Computed example of a mutant assay.
Amino acid sequence: MEIPEELITALEVPALELTALQGVNGVGLGMREENEEFFDELAVRVYVDDATDVPELPTQVHGLPVCVVEFSIEPLFTPDTSRHDPLVGGAQIEQAPMAAGTLGAVVLRNDDNTLAGLTCHHVSGDTGSRVFQPTAPPMPIGSTPDLTDSLGQVIAFDSPVSQAIPTAAGGTLWLGRQVDAAIIALDEAAQQGRSFSNEIANGFVPVCDPSMTGP
């Protein structure tokens, strides 16, 4: 069933309004469904947690019938608060409490053959910022943070101040970054006895290229 692009665009705002309703967990376009029977008719499919407790919905949106589909959603992933040792790519890192991002990989610097963490600048912060794994400790002003989970400080970053690259997000364009990269020293992690790996966690287990013999 072909769905016109202009119809998808027209339904973006109504879909946001519908998903804001209590009990609605998603809106899509597809075949009309009634009592688990499908009909060869395009419809706005509203997914709900409980079909017996549905909020008031329109019968049509942009001339299309609305059908209700019971489809509860269970998160596949939860925040990764595991302390990875050895440290691998894909692990959660934080520059400050409750500001989590992802470590891209453990890499080898060409300049001095030392190991470093590769991530995004918007995750790590500027040069000199300290990054922790898995989470940053409380850091009241004037106090010395607990460095047990510290990886080290940001060595360098490449990220323009002006955001000028249009990036698609739904039906709109947001100004994004052409480059968003940073490297983190791992000296403080090494001082805490951590080891390092070139593996990258895929959400379940670490994966790597068997041909790689080092980071």
Rank of each mutant, 00 (worst) to 15 (best):
L118K: 06
L64S: 00
I183C: 02
P206E: 04
I200T: 09
G125Q: 09
F132E: 09
C67W: 04
A43Y: 06
D85S: 08
A189I: 06
E74D: 05
H122T: 01
D149L: 00
S195R: 08
L87R: 01
C120R: 13
Q192C: 10
D111K: 12
R45K: 14
M1L: 11
N198D: 10
V179S: 15
P138W: 01
C208K: 14
V27Q: 00
A136V: 06
M98A: 14
D50P: 07
S211M: 11
E17K: 14
S129F: 04
A182E: 01
T148E: 07
L147Y: 02
L21C: 02
C208G: 14
T135D: 09
V205E: 14
D126H: 10
L11P: 02
D187P: 08
V207T: 14
T172G: 11
R83T: 15
I3D: 04
E36P: 08
G30M: 06
P160S: 12
L173D: 12
T19P: 03
P55A: 08
I184E: 05
A181P: 11
F71C: 10
E17Q: 15
L11F: 07
V27G: 00
P134Q: 02
V88I: 11
R109N: 09
P166K: 00
L7G: 04
H62Q: 14
P206L: 06
R109W: 08
L7K: 05
Q163A: 15
T135P: 07
V24H: 06
E188M: 09
A181S: 12
F196G: 01
D111S: 13
A164K: 11
P160F: 03
M212V: 09
D112A: 11
V179Y: 04
